[in-house]
Nucleic acid binder design. Sequence first.
DNA 1: TTGAAAGCGCTAACAG
DNA 2: CTGTTAGCGCTTTCAA
Lengths: 343, 343
Amino acid sequence: MVSVQEIANLANVSQSTVSKVLNNYPDVSEKTRKKVLEIAKQLGYVPNASAISLVKKKSSIIGVIYEVTSGFGNLFFSAILESFRSNAENNGYTIILLSQNEEKKKEYWMHCVSHNIESVFIISTKDQSVIETELKNHGIATLTLDPLYASSSPISTDNFEAMLLSLHYLYDLGHRAIGFIQGSLHSYVGKERLNAYLHFVKEKNLPSLFIPHIDNALYSLQQGYDTTSTLLNQFDHLDAIACCSDVLAMGAIYCLQDRGYHVPNDISIMGFDDLRISEITRPRLSTIRQDSITIGKIACETLLSMNSSNQSVPPILIKASLVVRNSTKKKESSIISTLYEFQ
Amino acid sequence: MVSVQEIANLANVSQSTVSKVLNNYPDVSEKTRKKVLEIAKQLGYVPNASAISLVKKKSSIIGVIYEVTSGFGNLFFSAILESFRSNAENNGYTIILLSQNEEKKKEYWMHCVSHNIESVFIISTKDQSVIETELKNHGIATLTLDPLYASSSPISTDNFEAMLLSLHYLYDLGHRAIGFIQGSLHSYVGKERLNAYLHFVKEKNLPSLFIPHIDNALYSLQQGYDTTSTLLNQFDHLDAIACCSDVLAMGAIYCLQDRGYHVPNDISIMGFDDLRISEITRPRLSTIRQDSITIGKIACETLLSMNSSNQSVPPILIKASLVVRNSTKKKESSIISTLYEFQ
DNA sequence: TTGAAAGCGCTAACAG
DNA sequence: CTGTTAGCGCTTTCAA
């Protein structure tokens, strides 16, 4: 490993001069700068991150807690991680995957302290409120994606607006009897989506077609199926159903098909997330796309701007977008459909 | 941050003694050891990883290149990463996510050299042969998951045996006209699966029902659909189709359904991978499960046992297992089905 | 069994 | 503009 010392020797200057060149200090003559740079390049100099971290008391490492229970959501989370990583990289930061060591009882914050890490991005399907607090207590800034709790610095899709987008789209298609399949009732994210539905039906003066007490915490196929079944039993008529996830929507479609309905001819179905599966279902799923690229980017920028004295930021909400595929359809008014029948 | 120095002062011993205690050296009296340990605990001592890495010229960091083009396979890769991470963790290692910095022209190996990283696990859907060589040239050991090329130290499912497992299962179900939908013809993994099919039909003296020139490099739904279509046009009769991925298998099912076949009553379909989607298709997919837990574990152990002088290992092959769901069925002999018709 | 001293590779005052 | 010096937190001879 080539050191600053070696470069200094060959260039006939001192270590500090080399250091200044390498760190782009202005107080070095052009001539010296060139010479040093050339020799450094020739020798294939690579700075020693440990030494720098040691002396600067600050590393160029961002911690990431990535604990995602295996599931479809993974694809969304890993897309965000990738976007986050690439942004961190472009800012000269490296990503370390944080974890707890059960055996050695090493906590997350210890890893951070040990590696001089100042900020941590939390991507988790579990409640990490304790860890978040612990990290903050140790002077480490955190940002939490889709927190399940009232995080002091959360980032997520603007779920309220996103669900409204879904509902307005169905409304504009002419649907008025719009059912709703909620996700988790205990997560912030899930509550926001439900609130949007409640707000919407009130505003538009529509019937509220959903089953209040059901908690689809798993966002699973079966939960989608069962909730749809209940919905169908409870309410006479449904034009459309807005679901809180793509997988729930698939469950809804299966249930409707089993009961002899055609999607989208009889009922329109909206998903949420735009996972890859929404491309391979039959019919392909109209849904709401969460913008993983932007979330990763903003998360990174925010975290880099935070520091131990400025550890919290107001909640960050990222805009989602509508993706129209084949599970939704304009409602044909009865008059028109009657006309058609006569043709 | 508490330092060794501080502990030494409070314990009335020297730094070196503290260091010896902390590193479990034997030549310290029990009394001193206890005292030091207690004070360290009281003070909440956390070792400075940079300082240790600097002086030992070796970090406890493993690099991971994780570059997976967005797709269903992601779930498999991320499961492996998770298993790998947890094993590394239990061995006292931390994971760093490696990457190239386009802007600053920083290469993977530079990250490694800079952080004193000795080994790298490559999880990538791209050809990383150049990078693998580059890393090895810099004295960094690598292990590559499912390499697309002839890697010097690959780890993967035993794809030959795994596909054989699939084929034998179909055979035991009574199927004799067994079609095959290959994946990529240019990857090692894809070739192994094809070879298994070729080997199998020859051994059992069965008709070879596959389309040689098709390269389903994307393993996509559409490719599965189209290949099935060609298969159906080309061959009179098919009892079953063994596919090289779950997504290809889904494409096959859609195609068969569109042509009026019932899966599994008319044709049995085998997937490969056991992605989560295989649980939510209709019918649910019988498939081959790749053992991500074991792969991650063995990968980690192997990498930790490698070092700059011992940089290559023979190919590591992990056993896969059969998962039976609803897309496969015992073949009813014509006599029996005829009998049924008379009932 | 303990401690003094040197040094890992680098940066940052500060003096010249 | 350049160099001297000290020191980041730790380990490791080597001497006591």
